[in-house]
Computed example of a mutant assay.
Amino acid sequence: MHYVTAKHILSAQNGINVYRGCTHGCIYCDSRSTCYQMDHAFEDVAVKANAAELLEDALRRKRRRCMIGTGAMCDPYLPLEKTERLTRRCLEVIDRHGFGVSVLTKSDLILRDLSLLQSINAKARTVVCTTLTTFDEELCRVLEPNVCSTRKRFEMLRTMHEAGIATGVWLCPILPFLNDTEENLRGLLGYCFDAGVSVIVNFGMGVTLRDGDRQYFYRKLDEHFPGMKERYIRAFGSRYSCPSPRHRELTRILQTECRARGVICGAEEAMAYLMRFEDRSAGEQLSLF
């Protein structure tokens, strides 16, 4: 971990990342890709010490309120958040200015900030999402070694739902030859429906691999699944998109089960849902989409 002074914090799409890098150790992480031009070791997380001050200034300049997203590139609830509390400070800024927030995290540390998220939700809107990849906890410990278990993430979502906060799941990646089974998908969907999620984000049953990400992924395949790297190379070569051979079957199951329960799962509709702003302080809804 090291501290940096950032020049800006809010993207053109109203997203923030208060940390850069990650210690979760997920073997498939796209954020390792060289295209993001990280100038430090991935596990040596850069802490944007002035993130809250930058966000305060950015929101003060906004002409109208909207949803602020976090978690797209770096988990806002890395273990170091326990002491750094940068994400919490940014949530306090969001709350103070009456903006909404959409959070994506693999950590149940977010429960620490439940009352703050409820405060935001009372004035605007809070959406909390987590990523689920595998129902098998032993496989989870291999694919995502430093993240809380799938079961704990499910319990976190259920707690958020019971607290009146909208929840969702990013169902990805579905790794070819590893977790692309009907049994795994139905197990994860069971968690989603039992937790009361409103939306499931899925951009296809498979994984994407870029330079930097691919090398790390293959190294971990050699470590944990001997022979699997060669299987990937035979199936996909150096392609960016690596779809599961069961893509159509699994997608059909996802769509059928979600439709039966009224859960959003279309990619465009899902993303619009996550970033839809509501002005609850005025007793009316304002949609930016």
Score class of each variant (00 low, 15 high):
residue 259 R to F: 06
residue 284 E to A: 05
residue 253 I to R: 00
residue 247 H to G: 03
residue 279 D to T: 10
residue 283 G to Y: 04
residue 228 M to R: 12
residue 218 Y to R: 05
residue 280 R to D: 13
residue 244 S to R: 03
residue 275 M to S: 11
residue 272 A to E: 12
residue 238 S to V: 01
residue 235 A to T: 08
residue 251 T to N: 14
residue 271 M to Y: 00
residue 224 H to T: 07
residue 256 T to R: 12
residue 281 S to A: 14
residue 222 D to S: 09
residue 252 R to E: 11
residue 241 S to Y: 13
residue 259 R to T: 13
residue 242 C to Q: 04
residue 222 D to W: 14
residue 231 R to I: 11
residue 258 C to T: 10
residue 226 P to H: 05
residue 260 A to I: 04
residue 236 F to C: 05
residue 249 E to A: 13
residue 236 F to E: 06
residue 266 G to Q: 10
residue 254 L to T: 03
residue 255 Q to K: 08
residue 229 K to E: 15
residue 269 E to D: 10
residue 247 H to S: 12
residue 255 Q to G: 02
residue 244 S to A: 06
residue 249 E to H: 15
residue 233 I to R: 12
residue 247 H to N: 11
residue 223 E to I: 13
residue 252 R to D: 04
residue 219 R to F: 05
residue 253 I to F: 01
residue 237 G to N: 11
residue 263 V to L: 07
residue 268 E to M: 11
residue 248 R to G: 03
residue 232 Y to L: 05
residue 242 C to E: 10
residue 278 E to K: 05
residue 224 H to C: 13
residue 270 A to L: 09
residue 282 A to K: 13
residue 260 A to W: 03
residue 227 G to E: 07
residue 217 F to T: 12
residue 224 H to S: 05
residue 259 R to L: 14
residue 273 Y to F: 15
residue 218 Y to I: 04
residue 267 A to I: 14
residue 269 E to P: 12
residue 276 R to K: 14
residue 233 I to M: 12
residue 235 A to P: 06
residue 265 C to A: 06
residue 222 D to M: 12
residue 281 S to R: 10
residue 243 P to C: 02
residue 250 L to V: 07
residue 231 R to V: 07
residue 282 A to F: 00
residue 224 H to V: 03
residue 244 S to I: 02
residue 253 I to K: 02
residue 230 E to S: 10
residue 243 P to N: 11
residue 228 M to Y: 09
residue 270 A to N: 01
residue 222 D to K: 08
residue 228 M to W: 04
residue 229 K to A: 13
residue 282 A to W: 02
residue 242 C to G: 01
residue 237 G to S: 14
residue 226 P to E: 11
residue 251 T to A: 12
residue 267 A to E: 12
residue 273 Y to K: 04
residue 223 E to S: 00
residue 269 E to F: 04
residue 217 F to V: 08
residue 234 R to E: 15
residue 280 R to L: 11
residue 252 R to P: 01
residue 277 F to S: 05
residue 282 A to Y: 01
residue 233 I to L: 14
residue 231 R to M: 14
residue 269 E to N: 08
residue 254 L to Y: 03
residue 230 E to Q: 02
residue 219 R to A: 15
residue 282 A to G: 14
residue 263 V to F: 08
residue 244 S to Y: 02
residue 275 M to G: 01
residue 234 R to L: 04
residue 256 T to G: 04
residue 270 A to S: 14
residue 266 G to K: 01
residue 234 R to W: 12
residue 262 G to F: 03
residue 250 L to T: 07
residue 241 S to A: 13
residue 241 S to R: 15
residue 276 R to E: 13
residue 245 P to C: 09
residue 251 T to F: 03
residue 279 D to H: 01
residue 221 L to Q: 02
residue 282 A to P: 02
